[in-house]
Simulated scan of single mutants.
Amino acid sequence: MTATQTAAPAQALPGEEGSGLDIRGLHKHYGSFRAVDDIDLAVPEGSFFALLGPSGCGKTTTLRMVAGLEEPTSGEIRIGGAEISHLRPFQRPVNTVFQSYALFPHMTIFENVAFGLRRRREPDIDRRVNEMLELVEMSHLAKRKPTQLSGGQQQRIAVVRALVNKPKVLLLDEPLGALDLKLRRQLQLELKRIQGEVGITFIHVTHDQEEAMTMADTIAVLNKGKVEQVGAPVELYENPRSAFVAGFLGQTNLLSVNVISRDASTVAVDFHGVRLTMPADRLSASGTAVEAGVRPEKISMADLGQAPSGMNTIDGTIIDASFIGVSTQYVVRAVADAEEEVAVFSQNSATRIRQVGEQVSLHWHPEHTFGLHEGAWIEAEAAEVAS
């Protein structure tokens, strides 16, 4: 088959017409190494979906298999219900935006965006290109060359050059990685706005947790070729189902505890003689010995013995305090166990900054506690290092 020929349309499954991206049993092996190990994902049409994880977790390999740049060892990839894994890259209803932008330096911005349309001899080229340039408010730069644009402007052009071809799925392979922090945050919101206006399914690969949570409707957290958890950003952050997710999406405290009672709604645990509680549906581990987790920003500090009633409370001594502008980050050593340390993020509002050596009562609402399997703190530390 030559580059100018097209493949026969892939057949959609009954009832799947119009669906987004569907991946089933996807594997990619390099010898004995499993880069992607039995991944299942269902991405709704028109959503902004992120593949998040550390380097080597399989996220980029997964994206490249969807794009047709890597051949799966096994598994199915469907878009709109049609199996596409046997199609060549140019035959798939996808376009990819890379970190390098890959703009043609000898062409104007207008011609860069029009390139794919001209190759396929499509109608209304001028109108469609101008619509895309207006989408990113860059019509006035149409006659410039890529080298005359900033990195952020080049990134916008790379996106609309891919969108002008009207793909069913736009693949974004860490497109903001080469930009400075301020511009990256600006373009995160810009990409989210563009996706909302065009309504095309976006699949975004990133190792940046904040970027994924800012932009995506749904995030799949990958680790060692497998999917750890899929959900909305708030769901993953507030209710992680594994230590890796808890540690990769922000910082968390994990306390070694023992379950002392449970019913349909509440689990009570013992932390070295201190009773703590959590909702039963937030304990994702079985057995008696588990880890109780709580995010540092959920914890408040009071003078020793002055914690409000009805809260989970641990007494301790401040052993470190770091002022970072909007907040102060404390480390408190629990009185109940000198080896347990708890991180606390406290907003620098009307409250005073506490000093190292002060004895305090840490307290948080029981509903902000979640439970993981015993030894989870080791996995969480590994996830924080990876992030």
Rank of each mutant, 00 (worst) to 15 (best):
S150P: 09
E235L: 01
G80V: 14
W377C: 01
K166D: 11
A376R: 03
V267W: 11
D263R: 15
S150N: 11
A158S: 14
A285L: 07
M138A: 15
E122V: 02
F115I: 05
L117E: 11
E17Y: 06
L135D: 09
P123G: 07
P308H: 10
V159E: 01
T288K: 00
Q329N: 12
H368Y: 14
V290Y: 01
L372Y: 12
Q186W: 14
L304Q: 07
P175H: 06
E381N: 11
Q155M: 05
A343M: 12
G56Q: 09
F49I: 01
G250A: 11
I125H: 09
I318W: 04
V257A: 02
A10M: 07
V269G: 00
L170T: 02
P279K: 09
S309W: 01
L170N: 05
T2L: 03
L187Q: 04
N223L: 06
E16L: 12
S55W: 15
I39W: 01
H27P: 01
K145A: 06
D281F: 00
A232G: 15
G116Q: 03
A334S: 13
Q91Y: 06
E174Y: 12
G305K: 03
T313Y: 00
Q91P: 08
H363M: 10
Q329R: 15
A178L: 03
A178M: 09
D38Y: 13
L170E: 07
E297R: 15
T61D: 06
K168D: 12
V342R: 11
V385M: 08
N348R: 13
I125F: 00
S261G: 00
A289T: 00
T218C: 09
L69E: 06
T108Y: 14
D217R: 04
L171W: 07
N312E: 03
D315R: 06
F49E: 04
N239K: 14
T60G: 15
D281A: 12
S300R: 13
G116F: 01
E211V: 01
L283I: 03
L304C: 04
A3M: 08
E340F: 05
H27N: 06
Q306W: 03
I125G: 06
V245H: 15
A8W: 00
E341M: 03
L21M: 06
Q153M: 09
V335Q: 12
L103K: 11
N253R: 13
R34F: 07
P240A: 10
A338S: 15
